[in-house]
Computed example of a mutant assay.
Amino acid sequence: MNLQVKEKMDDEKNVTLCIEGEVDVYTAPKLREKLLPLCQEGKTVTVDLSKCVYIDSTGLGVFIGAYKMQRGTDGKLILKGMNSRLLRLFKITGLHEIMKIEESAQEDGQP
């Protein structure tokens, strides 16, 4: 599956990246290319994962890299719109404890 990464500037310091598709070993470089520079600039970056259906370990690595990069700036990294499968992945790996995740009120029935 292909990956779409759409960038929406909310204002000078706030940007939203809408991720659609799968983040895996083949598509992660596309996400990295968009996400890391924004985190390096000290922006508040909200990543909307409501249309993301899959993330593998390479994709998790991109988010870890972005998290580490933004820690050295005044920026923030916020993940939102995860389905229950993606949220479970972040909980299993413990990343939910260090990253800001806005949980969706809508559940898709997955454990």
Rank of each mutant, 00 (worst) to 15 (best):
M69F: 00
K13A: 10
I19G: 03
M9N: 14
V5W: 09
V23A: 04
I98N: 00
E103A: 01
V23T: 02
L89N: 04
G75S: 07
A66R: 08
L60C: 07
D74V: 02
C52L: 02
G94K: 12
V53Q: 09
K43D: 01
F63S: 05
Y54P: 04
G42C: 07
I92R: 04
E102K: 09
E7P: 04
V45T: 11
D48E: 12
L86T: 00
T58V: 08
P29Y: 05
S84T: 10
L36P: 08
T46L: 13
L31M: 12
D11H: 11
I98G: 02
E22W: 06
E7I: 13
V23E: 04
G81C: 00
K51D: 10
C18L: 13
V15T: 15
D48R: 06
L89W: 00
K8V: 14
I64N: 03
A66S: 12
L60M: 14
K34M: 14
K34N: 10
K43R: 15
G94P: 11
K80L: 03
A28W: 03
L79M: 11
E20R: 12
E7R: 14
L3W: 09
G65D: 15
E97Q: 14
L49T: 06
G81E: 00
L89Q: 05
Q70T: 15
